[in-house]
Amino acid sequence: MRYWLIIIGLTLNSVAFAAAPERVRIKGDSYAPFYPGADKEEQLVEDFEMDTFPVTNAKFLAFVNANPKWQRGAVKALFADASYLENWPSPSSVVGIENQPVTHVSWFAARAFCDAQGGRLPTEHEWEFVSRADETRVNATGDLAFNQKVLTFYSKPGSGHIDNINQTPANYWGLHDLYGLVWEWVEDFNSSIISSDNRQSGDKQESKFCGGAALSAANTREYATFMRFAFRSSLKSSYTLHNLGFRCAYDIKSE
């Protein structure tokens, strides 16, 4: 059954996009983060909205056209390193890769894009909160099969090719492609201050991995989550990677 959905998604991309809303509303809740804060176990995630899919090259091109200072070649080196949008055929063309998630974007660029949409990058808490869901459950992280599935995706070697968006069924919240396509920027990607050794104990702020990791992580078997935190902590704001994209989040306007 799932295969059929995927095939339909592949062949009728535009139809599938039309069927899915641009963004979905996330009902916030308190949750236990992977790395609990020093003072409290639970963290409150407020209601918010989030893009259904990762931002595509086509959408990012529209943003670049409207904001030429974010064009490849024009962007300041401080805000994006040398591989910024290097996979685009030209600084103003995304022919052939329109529906692929945009990659080779820096944190600064991703942030500017979301700002232009009236949104922002999701926080790490928000991203981790929604990524715990599988198709039917708000939190599937206790399920070994779910963990192994995510882990298997993460451990695949990069092929150099990235698929179009809408590869995976919507999760509980209606979000697609949280896993399976690209890593995603979050607003506070380096706030965990993971030691680059990843195993040191001692300094509480750096006690994330190896012996220290087992002590401070909520669930030492969530290898996929470890990998996500490790990945984010290897980044700098100007980095642009072949497999790193983003999607935007939006505050709920008070009525």
Partner: peptide
């Protein structure tokens, strides 16, 4: 030295 070099060699893809 700390981490046997690990603290100084943490490297993102493409770096």
């Amino acid at each position: 030295g700390p981490g046997g070099g690990a603290t100084s060699s943490f490297t993102a893809p493409g770096h």
